[in-house]
């Protein structure tokens, strides 16, 4: 967006520069202001993570802690009865790491099948795939549990990870849409050069799917990281708990005793970090995009 062609008349240069400056100021003012509203919840949470319990509740709308209580982090990290967040993070990374890898990789393969190959029964398969997203989880939970129980998979990562090898309807559909947005000329050129379908997928389609794959990976990682129902039901020992499960085990609204809210906020704040890091690390690829030269046909 930098100045490519500088006009010769200085008068016009100034006004154009001024206009550009004005644009930039307006842009940053507006986008920045809304941005503050966007990050306010996080700021509030980070601030609460440094407050002591009484301060959290006494000054609930204040974003400034009265004093910094770093021990919230160490108290929280301790976890429960000697099982610390080190364990929970390890489990979460297993679930989110492999879960994302499996889900995104096979979604791309399946999406290519749906988007670029004609076969009988395709429409039915596609409809069935979409329909899996339309039934609320709440009624699928019990039959699913019984299925995995019969398979003897309960209390292992298998019910969490194995089904992901089949991809996920959301990502399959998403990648299909991206593939269908890619012109077919290159496919055909490659085909004429004797490339097979797998070859086209890997050499032509996949490189152009970078933004879609990155987006899918960001989502998949976050949704898996955040998922707590599946790990809660299938991982039946604190040594296997994920961060999301552990976070929910901190407080007991109905019961008595004091809840260490400072520690809850500290751990909740920390739990956002991996998701955030993944996003920041990957979004670069979203910005730079892909080179699509040579398509002018």
């Amino acid at each position: 967006m930098t100045t490519k062609a500088i006009p010769k008349s200085t008068g016009i240069t100034l006004t154009r520069r001024q206009r550009r400056l004005l644009n930039a100021v307006l842009y940053h003012f507006f986008v920045g202001l809304v941005g503050i509203a966007m990050v306010y919840p996080i700021l509030w949470m980070v601030s609460a993570s440094f407050k002591e319990t009484a301060d959290i509740w006494q000054n609930i709308s204040s974003i400034w802690p009265k004093s910094l209580h770093l021990e919230n982090y160490s108290n929280g990290w301790k976890g429960f009865g000697g099982i610390s967040f080190t364990t929970f993070y390890k489990n979460s990374f297993i679930y989110s790491g492999f879960g994302t890898l499996f889900q995104v990789a096979s979604s791309a393969v399946v999406a290519y099948g749906f988007a670029r190959i004609e076969f009988s029964g395709k429409r039915i398969c596609f409809a069935l795939m979409l329909s899996t997203m339309m039934l609320p989880d709440q009624v699928r939970m019990i039959p699913q549990y019984i299925l995995f129980n019969e398979l003897g998979w309960v209390n292992s990562f298998a019910p969490l990870l194995v089904p992901r090898l089949g991809g996920a309807a959301f990502f399959i559909f998403m990648i299909i849409q991206f593939i269908r947005g890619i012109p077919t000329e290159l496919d055909e050129a490659a085909m004429i050069d004797g490339c097979g379908k797998a070859g086209i997928f890997f050499r032509i389609i996949l490189p152009q799917l970078t933004p879609a794959m990155i987006t899918a990976a960001i989502f998949s990682f976050y949704w898996t990281w955040d998922d707590f129902m599946t790990p809660l039901i299938y991982l039946n020992s604190p040594k296997m708990y994920t961060v999301s499960v552990a976070l929910r085990a901190f407080s007991d609204r109905g019961g008595g005793g004091a809840t260490d809210w400072g520690a809850i906020f500290a751990m909740s704040t920390l739990s956002l970090l991996p998701v955030f890091i993944i996003f920041v690390a990957f979004q670069r690829y979203l910005v730079e995009g892909i080179s699509t030269t040579g398509l002018k046909g």
């Binding site: 986008v31 920045g32 809304v34 941005g35 966007m38 990050v39 919840p41 996080i42 949470m45 609460a48 976050y222 990281w225 955040d226 707590f228 999301s244 976070l247 929910r248 901190f250 407080s251 609204r253 809850i264 906020f265 909740s268 739990s271 956002l272 998701v275 955030f276 996003f279 920041v280 979004q283 670069r284 979203l286 910005v287």
Partner: peptide
């Protein structure tokens, strides 16, 4: 813009814990 993009995305990744 990197910063803004991250800022605008944050509310979407806070999850569903008690703290949230």
């Amino acid at each position: 813009v990197y910063f803004y993009r991250a800022a605008y995305y944050t509310p979407s990744v806070v999850g569903g814990s008690v703290a949230v």
